[in-house]
């Protein structure tokens, strides 16, 4: 039951091989974490799957369809939601407006001059906000939100097209420790409820080991290990280059 199948993905930047022959798969409703030191190729890998960077080699299959060179726009329409490492939503809008914009885009109305955008599907936007716990911030400007709440807006945006796969780059970076667990519990419950698979990168090992079904460890652009949390924790190769003795 593979939803996402990544095969032999590679990318070089000049002399540096950022991602080198990386293959893995994500099963339906699975939460797969990618970990590794800075510069291991996590973000590059992620951005290639998300359409932000074009791979040099390799293929990405989503539900059997080749999406390797699809634009982010197309991926969104195919059912892949994406959140970014540094939460950057539309600073000049409030929460409801941001979500209305996503709904307008989903419905293919972004070229329209015919009606004020603020009147479009306000209720659905409010429901979307409520689903990530932002019901009290509908009229708050995004620039006034706390970072944790901004991350929630990102999540709501990614959910706007009822995705089957969520790509989350550092979903909890910059959040307070209790907020992190809360965030991942929210993701988990959304995933279980709607049958969504989640592929995420993360630095916080508590988050990774508490919430991932399987863990992919990258080092210097290559796959070091891919296994369940318990196996990864015990893997001597992973300990040597990454986790060290404390883990």
């Amino acid at each position: 039951m593979t939803l996402l199948d990544v095969q032999r993905l590679s990318k070089r930047f000049g002399a540096v091989s950022a991602v080198d022959n990386v293959s893995f798969d994500v099963a339906r409703t699975e939460m797969l974490a990618i970990i590794g030191p800075n510069g291991a190729g996590k973000s590059t890998c992620f951005n290639m799957i998300g359409g932000q960077i074009e791979p040099d080699m390799g293929t990405v299959l989503f539900d059997g369809t080749d999406i390797t060179r699809d634009t982010p726009q197309k991926l969104f329409r195919s059912g892949i939601g994406r959140t970014f490492q540094i939460a950057a939503v539309f600073q000049s809008m409030n929460v409801r407006e941001v979500l209305q914009t996503a709904l307008l885009s989903r419905d293919g109305r972004t070229a329209s001059f015919l009606f004020p955008a603020r009147r479009y599907k306000g209720e659905e936007a409010d429901e979307l906000a409520a689903s990530v716990g932002l019901q009290d911030f509908l009229n708050t400007e995004c620039r006034a939100l706390s970072y944790g709440d901004l991350k929630r807006v990102e999540l709501a945006l990614a959910l706007a097209n009822r995705p089957r796969l969520l790509l989350m780059d550092e979903p909890t970076a910059g959040m307070a420790p209790d907020g992190r667990q809360q965030m991942m519990r929210l993701v988990r419950s959304l995933a279980d409820k709607s049958g969504i698979s989640v592929l995420f990168t993360e630095h916080d090992m508590d988050v990774v080991f508490n919430h991932a079904d399987r863990i992919l460890v990258l080092n210097k652009g290559q796959v070091l290990a891919l296994d369940t949390p318990d196996e990864i924790r015990a893997d001597p190769a992973v300990q040597a280059v990454y986790l060290g003795e404390e883990a």
Partner: peptide, 23 residues
């Protein structure tokens, strides 16, 4: 104020984010 302008501003405020919601 129309959807056109909202999508435009979304692209201005955060390009990658806007593209990832299909704009």
């Amino acid at each position: 104020h129309a959807p056109f302008g909202f999508a435009l501003r979304a692209g201005r405020d955060a390009k990658a984010r806007a593209e990832a919601i299909g704009i």
